[in-house]
């Protein structure tokens, strides 16, 4: 039987997350091809609709990687996004979808390994949860 390959969408910001991603590349670490990365200037740009649409279009897992709450370059973008993620998790539960399919992470700009660790954690979680539909 073919192993389930989850479809994952990862939004990441141009600041801390981007720098961590670059560092991870320099370390020779790359993400698997079933995790699709979408860059945004700030995680605060991501709206509830964008998260839902990713699921509507077949994502089994959606996650966001951004700055730490006290070092967001745009001050409160990550805080706003975290609130929106909490709202969507609540919606997903009411819609019969596991809220664990959506997650948000704050990481440090220098931690390339974390960028990859997060991706692997999401990949494993998606495999456990199975396909969304």
């Amino acid at each position: 039987m073919q192993e389930f390959k989850p479809k994952i969408v990862a939004f990441y910001c141009s600041n801390c997350a981007s720098s961590a991603a670059e560092i991870s590349n320099k370390l020779g670490l790359f993400l698997p091809e079933n995790i699709k990365l979408i860059n945004v200037p700030c995680t605060g740009r991501i709206e509830i609709l964008h998260l839902l649409k990713a699921f509507e279009n077949g994502a089994d897992m959606v996650y966001v990687v951004g700055c730490q709450e006290d070092s967001c370059q745009y001050i409160n973008g990550i805080l706003k996004l975290k609130k929106r993620v909490a709202h969507v998790k609540n919606m997903l539960e009411q819609m019969g979808i596991e809220p664990q399919r959506l997650e948000v992470f704050s990481l440090y700009a220098g931690k390339g390994q974390d960028f990859v660790n997060i991706a692997n954690e999401m990949l494993n979680r998606a495999k456990q949860l199975g396909p969304i539909y």
């Binding site: 509830i48 609709l49 839902l52 649409k53 699921f55 509507e56 919606m91 819609m95 019969g96 979808i97 969304i132 539909y133």
Partner: peptide, 13 residues
């Protein structure tokens, strides 16, 4: 748009 998307997802589920 949000409500429409949510309805589609829930029904697809």
């Amino acid at each position: 748009a949000i409500l429409a998307s949510a309805i589609r997802i829930a029904e697809k589920k």
